[in-house]
Each structure stands twice: as C-alpha cells, then as structure tokens.
Design a protein around this nucleic acid. Structure first.
Lengths: 254, 254
DNA sequence: CCCGCACATTGATGTTCGTCAATGTCCAGG
DNA sequence: CCTGGACATTGACGAACATCAATGTGCGGG
C-alpha cells in the first residue's frame, strides 16, 4: 500500500483480479490503477445478507468478484420484485445519488471489490477515461434492462421460464460440472430460490414450478435438483422461449 | 455560425433553447456550448415517422425539444412492446454502439435538436463535464426503467392504468388547458393511441379500454376524448394505482 | 356534407394464472 | 438416525385477462 504512489508498481490486487478485464477498471492507467488499489478493499457477504436496503443512504460501491446479487424493489402492498441481477464483473451500487432506490441482497455468498462511494466518485471525476467506460457499461445495462422488461411484459410464463433457463445455460456454459455428473449435456445452474426466480419473472413459485415440471415432462430439461438442470433439448427450449436464438445470445452476453 | 469560435458569443440557438436547463447541455462551458451550436441542427419529424429502425445503424442523436418518442422492441413473434417513452429534454439515440437495439418512432410531431452521432461522441470525449452529466442522466434513467419494470410486472392492469394516468397528470400539470375547458380540475393529456398505451402497459387495447371505462363509471376520471381526461378524484386514482403518492411523484419527476 | 376508414368500445367466451390448501422433499442440528 | 423447518411440488378453484367478433365514434378527404 505504501508504494501505491509509484505508478509503475502494480503489486496490488487489481493485476491479479479475476474480473479485471471484464470490469470498467481495465481502461485505467497504471497511475489510476494504483489509486484504485488504494481505495478498494475486498469484502465478503454471506448469502441472504441485505448489503444495502431500499431507500438507505448508499456509501459503498464496487465490482462483484464472485456470487450473485439481486436488486429488488418492494412496493407499498408488500410484494417485492426483482428488477435486476448482478453477476461477477458487474458494478455494484448507485453512484451520484444520496440513496439507493433498490435493495441489494446477496443471493449467494458474495465477494465484492468495495470502495467508498464518494471516494470512487472523486476518482471518476479525476479519470474521465474510466468514467467514459462506466457510461458505456451503463448504456449497455440500460438496453439490457429494457430488453428484459419487454420479455417479462409481453410473454407467457412458459416463455419467460424458458428464456431464463436458456440465458442461464449460456452464462454457465464454461462453469465446471456438478460432481458426479456423467452426461455430456450442459448443466444449467440457477443459484436462485424458486421464490426469487418467480419474483424475477413476475409470477408465483407455484406457476413457476408447474412450468418447470412441464418442461421436464416434455424431456426438454431434466431436474437434477432445485438449482441444477440438465439441458436435454436446447432448440426445444429456445422454441418455448418465443425468442430467436440470436436475441437470447445477446441477452446472455449483455 | 462563423463566429462560433468566439466563446463569448452565444448568439446561437442553445441560449434560447426551451429545454436547455433540463438537458445535459446546461453544464457546458461557453466554449463547449458554441461547439454544440455548431454541430447541432433542428430537425422535425411528423407523427408516425420511424426516426430510427430497430437494429439499424444509428447515426443521429440529440435532445427532444418537443413531442413524444416511443422506444419499442418487436420480438420474433411479431408483437412489439414499448420499452420507454421520451419527452422534451430527454436524450435521443444510442451513443457508443453500432446499431440501436430499439426502434424510435415519433408518437406526436417531434422537434429534435439533432447531432451527428460520432460528432457528439467526439464532443463528449473532449468535454468530460458534459459526459459526466450524461452519466448521471443515464443512471437516473436506469432507476426509472427498473422502477417502471417493477410496476408493469407485478400489478394488475387496473393498477398500471391508474399509475400511467396519474403520472401523466403530474407531467401535464403545467400545460395549458384544452380550449373550451371550463372546469377547474386538472386535464390529463395522453398523446398515445390505445394500442400504444396497451403496448406500454403490457396489455391489450380491449382490456385497457374496459379499465378506463371502469374508472370513468366510478367518477375517478371523465373521458373528454380519446386522448384527454379530466381528473375528478386524484386520491381515488392513487388508490387504484396501488402505489404511494410519493412513489408516483418520483416516477413522474424522473 | 357525407362517406369511408381508422380507432375505440362493448360483448361473449375460453385460457392462463394467482390463490389457498395439502403434501412431498431436502438438509441441518440434536 | 431422527426430527423439524424451510422450500418445492401438486391439486382444486376462481378471478383476471386475452381473444374473437361486432358495434360505435370521430375525423379527414372527396
């Protein structure tokens, strides 16, 4: 830490960061990266932890190193809706606002590259090239959120379920298999509970369960356990989603 | 135009722009504003014009001076969904991407302060303070889109209809009354067709119409004509929306 | 001024989905 | 190993909504 002032020395954590080249950090100059090294620190949150409550003053931002975070909004009548999911390399927190409009909750155990919000805001002002990258990331995110909204809005529950499963299958393509998995089919890992999936898709756990079972009976998927599915027939799953394969690829890529 | 190089001379259109202090331009320095003056030009589009098609190369960006633009996404099965509406002072177009994910269509006659996309992108790189403002605007927009997604997702059609009407009533608060309007009640102007509203709310024109008529029969609104409604009982409308008044105010403010 | 067309409304009907309730399953802790 | 509790599934039913079809309304062009 004491040698962070030397731009040439990058002995900090950023150089070995697993999400480095997918996060906004990758455009930072050596000098900027040294500064990021100084103001950031790794924090871990256990599954279920509310990292930031809805409407609370937001003081921590950063990048997700590992795990999944859900962004949810509880309305007056009590039911809450998941308006977004954050994965490794996604930016966490709400910059340039007093408080966060949404709650951030760790869906799995989460590792965060955390920074003080105002500290990072000052860093961005001093480093327009990083802020530029942040803008591009947020523009992409905006498209993705709108696209997802279009899907949840106008499709049947089955189409939404199929879409989610296929998108998650693309996302977990390169992940290691479940231990003991003998088959050559892809395994889809959905780290959310049925309730969370239902909240994300705008339905109920019951209806969701029925649709999953229907897909299983149709031999499109095989239910390994509550959070793992074997993908038996990808093209059938795409057909059930009502989307073109290209659109699904794009959604998964984000 | 020839004296645009003189930073002190702001004889261009920006100084008299009606949306100036609500758009990102308002943080521009005199020098930057002179440059904006040079690269921007007013363009008008008739109601119904597709300003930019879905998936088309995007070459024009800018601010909306007057009118309403809808952002829509047509899925493979043909039905399209409105994923956003743009009002005066909103930024138009998709920066830093080859093509636009969504179609932009003029819902009313539209006046645009248009700029060449790559020209404005270069401007932003040269003027980080404006890019910073753009980032803040997009972060706000992201929250607004997520919030709207939460509303359309988890509520009944009646709640969505009531929410839309109330939000539009707040937006048109300061607009002039329809000619011949004698009452002291607020008049809500919704410049969209029934089909567009239905697409925006994720329902059908038929169901939408039934809900509007139900609100009229309950004396919550009075239907002046297809696009104008007299607001008879605001608190009842809020009750039907299922949202708190504060949330609705925030959504309308954006 | 009337006609025709697009748009809005209304009606009838079937399907999907949410709700309530019961049962099944998995895992952690005693 | 057994037990309790959280979570997932299944069933039965009704309400909300999409769909199809017909009718009404308003507006611009001949």
């Amino acid at each position: 830490m004491s040698n962070a002032a030397d731009p040439a020395c990058l002995c900090g954590k950023c150089t070995s960061c697993v999400i480095f080249n997918r996060s906004v950090c990758h455009v930072a100059s050596p000098e900027a990266m040294a500064q990021l090294n100084r103001i950031s620190h790794i924090r871990k949150f256990a599954r279920g932890t509310v990292i930031q409550g809805q409407g609370e003053a937001s003081d921590i931002v950063g990048n997700i190193i590992e795990g999944v975070v859900k962004l949810s909004s509880a309305s007056a009548n009590g039911d809450d809706h998941i308006v977004g999911l954050l994965f490794p390399s996604d930016f966490f927190g709400r910059l340039f606002a007093e408080e966060s409009r949404f709650a951030y909750e760790a869906v799995t155990d989460v590792t965060l590259c955390a920074m003080n919000k105002s500290g990072f805001e000052r860093f961005l002002i001093d480093h327009p090239e990083v802020e530029h990258e942040m803008l591009k990331a947020k523009l992409d995110e905006l498209d993705a959120v709108r696209e997802w909204a279009a899907i949840t809005n106008g499709h049947t529950t089955m189409q939404r379920v199929a879409t989610l499963l296929f998108v998650f299958s693309l996302r977990s393509r390169n992940q290691r298999r479940e231990p003991g998995d003998q088959s050559s089919n892809p395994v889809v890992h959905v780290p959310l509970s049925r309730r969370d999936i239902a909240d994300y898709l705008g339905t109920t756990p019951e209806t969701l369960s029925r649709n999953i079972q229907t897909l299983a009976r149709a031999k499109v998927i095989r239910i390994i356990n509550a959070k793992h599915f074997e993908l038996l027939n990808a093209s059938e799953l795409v057909r059930h989603s009502g989307e073109s394969r290209e659109d699904l690829e794009r959604i998964a890529a984000r």
